[in-house]
């Protein structure tokens, strides 16, 4: 699809807005519909669009496999780490009330951290899955040539 000028330009214009919307959904999940799961998927879809329009090689340069792998593991680590942090500060596992001076703020921080971990893992997982499907097709093309 890389020879369509309009598609290329519009895709480039849309990218920042999709990512901004993903971040909005991530941060605003406390007050309206949204949260880590949705934000992660939207974030990944921005890179799916990029990969579709500019091809897999360009997308891999933007988002290398190593970074995706680190993001995938780091999200789960943040989630579990938040739980263990509560444990170290004298509460139960995944009890956020002890994270700040008063329980209400602690809960707020805890939920924010958890949602961030969820978003990171979901975004990396979706991008990884798509890149592997698309990358396999690209490999086949090379071999057939």
């Amino acid at each position: 699809m890389s020879h369509h000028l309009v598609v290329r330009v519009v895709a480039k214009l849309l990218m920042p807005f999709i990512i901004l919307f993903a971040l909005y959904v991530q941060m605003h999940g406390d007050f309206g519909p949204g949260g880590g799961f949705q934000a992660g998927v939207i974030f990944a879809s921005a890179f799916v669009l990029y990969a579709l329009v500019y091809g897999m090689d360009a997308a891999r340069k933007v988002l290398p496999d190593g970074a995706l792998r680190i993001g995938l593991a780091l999200g789960v680590l943040i989630y579990g780490g938040t739980g263990v942090l509560g444990l170290l500060l004298g509460g139960n596992f995944l009890d956020y009330s002890v994270l700040a001076h008063d329980p209400v703020h602690g809960q707020h921080y805890g939920i924010f951290a958890i949602e961030f971990g969820v978003g990171l893992t979901v975004a990396s997982a979706m991008a990884t899955i798509f890149f592997h499907f698309a990358g396999r097709g690209a490999n086949l093309d090379e071999m057939e040539e």
Binding site: F31, Y79, G110, I111, V118
Partner: peptide, 28 residues
């Protein structure tokens, strides 16, 4: 208890935190 108006988010992340940890592990 949390100051967050979206009940779904609160239940997801706080009351049922173990569940969500499991789901994230499944996706991982």
């Amino acid at each position: 208890k949390t100051g967050i108006p979206n009940v779904v988010t609160v239940v997801l992340a706080s009351y049922r935190g173990y569940d969500t940890l499991g789901e994230v592990t499944v996706i991982f």
